[in-house]
Amino acid sequence: MSDLDLQADLKLALDVADVADAFTLPHFVDRDFTVDWKTNQTEVTEIDRQTETLIVNSLVAQRPDHGTFGEEHGLGGNETSLWRWVIDPIDGTSGFVRGIPVWASLIALTHDDIPVLGVVSAPALGFRWWGGVGLGAHVSVRGAERSISVSSVTALGDSQVCVTHNAGWDRLGLTERLVSLQQQARRSRGLGDFWQHMLVAEGAMDVAVDAVGVAPYDLAAIQPIVEAAGGTFTDRHGEATHLHDTAISSNGHMHDKVIALLS
């Protein structure tokens, strides 16, 4: 993987993120959409569906040999290709529909189910993050770009952690352990979705524990950015994958301790 040249794919992903942002942000501001409910009791809007169509069409036009997989429309493009774009058109739809600006379009490129490139664009926040194999990790804040890296905090008692609790942690019987993690940290927050992991990549947070029940399209763009920033990204058992239903990112120093607590 270290020999991959992903610069052209990164440019494409950033260009497509521009297209997505230009569509999603005005609808968020104008509140001109309706809300439906999926069978899993999560919100969806026509903006989610239309944004995914825009992203997929833009990617397939430039990479006709690649496959795509999105939250709203599933598989597309060349379904047999080892190269696949994984898309969450609006990560944080529950915030989007309530006027909370913590939402983003997630665009990842995977090869044989391994994420190699990710773009996370949050236009309502004015932030965009990207990174991947051989690309480093970067953030753009209202047009000002800089490289990012994880923190150097080594002790849980000195750390800032972000925990997203949901009923899935209750079903696993691990809620008390989540609380224990928060109590052991210097400070705990609950920011959720993509943002908690991007703050780990930036070095602002030291550990982020996601909700139980996340899907590949929630995580595929996150993993390569965190890893390119020098961090560690795994499921709650310590496996470095975006394909399972839990996700923990960290600066790496306390990762084993967090996994031991939550696995």
Rank of each mutant, 00 (worst) to 15 (best):
F69E: 07
P216T: 03
R189Y: 14
L125R: 03
T234Y: 07
D193M: 10
R84S: 03
F28T: 01
D88W: 06
G173N: 02
W83D: 08
V86N: 12
M1V: 11
R146S: 14
H111L: 11
V226A: 07
V19S: 08
F194D: 06
G99A: 04
V16T: 13
S140P: 04
L181W: 11
M254F: 09
V141N: 09
A211Q: 02
T39Y: 08
I87W: 05
H138S: 00
L174G: 04
R146M: 08
D21P: 06
D91V: 04
L54A: 09
T68Y: 09
I248T: 02
T246D: 05
R31Q: 14
D32S: 14
G118D: 12
A201D: 03
L178D: 05
A20Q: 02
H255I: 05
T34R: 10
H73M: 10
G131N: 06
G67L: 03
E52N: 10
N57T: 11
G131T: 00
F23T: 06
V133H: 00
G157C: 04
F69K: 04
G74C: 04
A240D: 11
Q183G: 07
N251H: 05
V44M: 12
I55M: 06
R49I: 13
T42P: 03
E79Y: 01
D48R: 12
A104I: 05
G190N: 14
D30G: 06
V19N: 07
R146Q: 14
G92K: 02
L10E: 01
E145C: 04
V116P: 00
W169N: 01
G118S: 11
K38Q: 11
L6P: 11
T93E: 04
M254A: 13
G92N: 05
G99F: 02
G95A: 15
E145A: 08
V258H: 09
T34Y: 09
L243T: 13
Q183A: 14
D48Y: 11
L82E: 15
V35R: 09
E72S: 15
M198Y: 06
D158I: 02
G238C: 13
L14P: 03
